[in-house]
Design a protein around this nucleic acid. Structure first.
Lengths: 207, 207
DNA sequence: TCTAAAAATTATCATATGTTAAGGTTCGAA
DNA sequence: TTCGAACCTTAACATATGATAATTTTTAGA
């Protein structure tokens, strides 16, 4: 018995039911078919969720914890594509969008609790219950919005500006994640992030 | 009379009808409601299509030509977010995803022919004809895939590597667009792009 | 609490990019 | 064809980042 996990499951489902109601007016009682297919997954810190080469089409809502997706470059270093935290969705876009083996590794940074569904099953349910489609649109639009936001920051801002913004908007995330992953997500080395921090500290001190 | 434009319109609609058939099995004859709401738009070179601050929710399929979306930074320079060319969709994500005034300017680089629809009308049609939903999913997934691709390149590659890849994959686009916009899209200055080109030329010559 | 491993900082040197300015080239409109 | 504007290239210098390695700090497990 893991009552804690089931409490979490209820909480996640409540959030998603509320979301679906706001998007489409569907009442929580009418979402049974959708949530029958979901299951709760509990992961330890530093555990791999999706391996490079995996072809399964998992789609998960993060109830608690932080995950990162990364790949290993030719020189052996890893490049962090993004971090995802509680309230966000996580999925391998290679498997879901392109139906190809995942090039990225998805791994927890903390103990994580997920509400997991299979995208193939979701698709078959959506064929039978097209009234749930707004939830898929919401998921896609949110992923797109977040990705565009990151792309914008790369085109418009310097690494230092991106770090400052990340600190201002997601201090709670930056604070929980080793700096080397933050650096990698910003497209710089940990050494360079150290220097940025030092520059910021010196500037602040001079007042 | 502009027979040329109507020929283009037919060509675009054929492409999209074919797409919809592949995605959902809907026959071209049954797509009348969807394409009643589309109109052909012809733009000159260097013409603004969406202004900063615009709130309309235009969604367009590029039949011919290249467009770029950019914003103007605090220092007055512009930052090119991306280029879009024939066969791709273009839309202001601020207005469609966030329902906010567009922060970006969308402008043609060449004479452009678009098949334009209004996202609000599209949404109302999708309510009446939910069988067209796969087209919206396709559009969202493709935008997401393209955006993720760009984001990956920023995290994993150097400006020089991104330029090499762009040349290899989109020589036809690079060739048609002034280098300063290519540079801006890569996140660097035109001066730096010149140096990259020179480095590439010197390396090639040494064989 | 103690200790080993991981992470972060710092230093040094090499390299890439930003900025500014000058000169050269290309392109389009008259 | 000509001319001016836009664009590209190059140079010089300042600054930021990358790579490597040594040192310090933090973290996590025994």
């Amino acid at each position: 018995m893991r009552p804690l996990l089931f409490n979490h499951m209820e909480a996640s489902i409540n959030i998603l039911q509320q979301l679906l109601f706001e998007l489409s007016g569907i009442l929580p009682d009418d979402t049974q078919p959708l949530f029958n297919m979901t299951k709760m997954v509990s992961l330890d810190a530093n555990e791999v969720y999706i391996r490079r080469g995996d072809t399964n089409r998992k789609l998960a809502f993060i109830e608690k914890g932080i995950m990162r997706s990364y790949s290993i470059k030719d020189n052996g270093d890893d490049a962090t594509l993004f971090l995802r935290w509680e309230g966000q969705f996580i999925a391998s876009h290679d498997t879901i969008i392109h139906r190809k083996p995942s090039r990225f590794i998805y791994r927890t940074l903390e103990p994580v609790i997920l509400l997991e569904m299979d995208y193939d099953i979701l698709e078959s349910i959506l064929k039978t219950y097209p009234e749930y489609e707004p939830l898929r649109n919401f998921f896609l639009m949110r992923m797109l919005a977040e990705t565009l936001q990151m792309m914008e920051s790369f085109v418009m801002q310097s690494p230092e500006e991106r770090y400052r913004e990340l600190l201002a908007e997601r201090f709670n995330v930056v604070n929980r994640v080793p700096g080397k992953y933050i650096a990698s997500m910003l497209g710089i080395t940990p050494v360079s992030l150290s220097r940025i921090r030092k520059r910021m500290y010196v500037k602040q001190k001079s007042f």
